[in-house]
Simulated assay, not measured.
Amino acid sequence: MYIATARRAPAAGGTGRIAANVLALGAVSLLTDVSSEMVTAILPLYLVLGLGFSPLQFGVLDGIYTGVTALVRVVGGHAADRWQRRKLVAGLGYGISAAGKLGLLAAGTSATAMGLVLAGDRTGKGLRTAPRDALITLSSEPSALGRAFGVHRALDTVGAFLGPLVAFCLLWTLPARYDVVFVVSFCFAALGVLVLVLFVRDHRDVLPGVAVSLKSAFGLLRAKPFRRVCLVACGLGFLTLGDGFLYLLLQKKLDVDVAYIALLPLGTAGVYLLAAVPMGALADRVGRWRMFLVGHLALLGAYLLFAGASGIALLAGVLVLHGLFYACTDGVLMAVAGPLVPDELRTSGLALLQTGQVLARASSSVLFGALWTWFAW
């Protein structure tokens, strides 16, 4: 089958140090997440409360925002593996997403135009995510993958923490000036592309005679361990509520002033930032699968709080559990899947997994938006 063997054993005398490439990719993700989370934080406010979109319209757009990446992940992952240009493909993705921030200025109040711009932005994310994660796995010692992804996701989450804060400060200083938020978001994204170009090193080591094709990439699904990872991730992804809906539910339940919606992701990001490295290191010791499932139990706990809690207990409980969910699952899933895929198909394999997961989450967003609209919750 296509399961990786011990081809990449840990380096002799490995210290478990985090590779410079991982840190550079973390810096790129930090800057990019400042940019993307500035937009994500205000998107529910901008679309539902500003432009008057219905929850169903927001659900469809959120599904596009999440799910369009599936259209390019596999193709982008295959291209990165086949051409051995993981850095180039990732850089193209980061560049497209940066341009998408300026596109938001031209979309106006049109749901169609907004959907097209968001689709373009997520196309960039679809292109960059698998090559980036493949570079992390190929730059790290296999025994320390959980910690490596934890460090990367911690840096990523610094950006996720700062993004909503920057957006809030801009809107507090310049009320309703969403155009300013979009321009500043573009500047951070462009800086991230520059850091990628200057400091990230590509990883090009295809073995002679190894075929890299879409057929061999999809052939990974014939291997039971990798197929099981994909099926579980997709199934749980379908049960995962989009972040935007979670924050809208908190706003509705607690009657939070709309000006503070952009601050709600800070709670999730703060917990994620503090827990990402410890949870990644713990996953290396106690089992990455166990940690992944524990994360979804934390998310279930957050959902259950809406039925039985109120006030500060609901707010703090949901945000803490939501942050723990990401700390226990995001990088950990890539650490689970990485060793199951051979080096020459690393990007393609991770892209397949991520594609299934985002399609499941996109379906969940559309379904929940429709239920919210039809039942007038």
Score class of each variant (00 low, 15 high):
Asp343His: 11
Asp81Leu: 09
Gln251Gly: 10
Thr5Ala: 11
Gly244Trp: 08
Gly126Val: 06
Gly219Val: 08
Ala275Gly: 11
Leu43Tyr: 10
Gly287Gln: 10
Ala190Thr: 11
Ala90His: 12
Asp62Asn: 06
Glu141Val: 08
Val183Asn: 07
Phe149Cys: 00
Leu118Ala: 04
Thr66Arg: 00
Ser97Asp: 04
Cys328Met: 13
Ala327Arg: 01
Ala113Pro: 03
Thr240Val: 08
Arg147Gly: 12
Pro342Ile: 02
Leu241Tyr: 03
Tyr260Arg: 14
Thr373Leu: 08
Val72Ala: 12
Trp83Tyr: 15
Leu174Val: 14
Gly209Thr: 04
Ala79Gln: 13
Gly16Met: 06
Asp62Leu: 10
Glu141Trp: 04
Leu293Glu: 07
Leu105Trp: 06
Ser36Arg: 05
Leu324Thr: 05
Ala283Leu: 10
Ser364Lys: 00
Ala113Trp: 14
Leu293His: 14
Phe368His: 00
Ala307Gly: 15
Cys234Gln: 04
Leu340Ser: 00
Ala376Phe: 05
Gly295Ile: 03
Asp33Ile: 04
Gly67Arg: 06
Ala309Arg: 07
Val68Leu: 13
Arg288Met: 05
Ser35Ile: 05
Ile3Cys: 08
Gly317Asn: 11
Leu88Asp: 13
Gly76Ile: 00
His322Lys: 08
Asp133Trp: 14
Gly100Val: 01
Ala113Thr: 09
Ser140Val: 02
Pro339Ala: 07
Ser310Cys: 12
Ala9Asp: 13
Ser216Val: 12
His78Ala: 13
Gly126Cys: 00
Val117Ile: 06
Tyr260Ala: 13
Val341Arg: 00
Ala276Gly: 06
Arg177Lys: 10
Gln354Glu: 12
Val166Asn: 02
Gly146Gln: 10
Gly192Met: 07
Arg82Glu: 12
Thr173Val: 13
Val318Gly: 01
Ala4Pro: 06
Val332Leu: 05
Val166Gly: 09
Asp156Tyr: 01
Gly192Val: 03
Arg128Ile: 07
Gly13Cys: 08
Phe186Arg: 06
Leu43Ser: 15
Ala276Val: 11
Ala119Gly: 15
Leu47Val: 05
Leu345Cys: 04
Leu174Ser: 09
Pro131Gly: 01
Leu248Glu: 09
Leu43Cys: 05
Phe186Cys: 08
Leu198Phe: 15
Trp377Ala: 14
Leu127Cys: 02
Ser310Pro: 06
Ala275His: 05
Pro265Thr: 02
Gly77Asp: 01
Gly311Tyr: 03
Leu116Met: 05
His322Leu: 14
Leu171Met: 06
Thr123Asn: 10
Arg204Lys: 15
Ala337Leu: 09
Leu248Ala: 09
Val318Ile: 00
Ala111Val: 14
Ala99Lys: 05
Val206Ala: 14
Leu221Gln: 01
Pro44Gln: 07
Val366Ile: 13
Leu274Gln: 06
Ala99Pro: 10
Leu263Gly: 12
Phe245Tyr: 11
Glu344Leu: 12
Thr40Ala: 15
Arg17Glu: 15
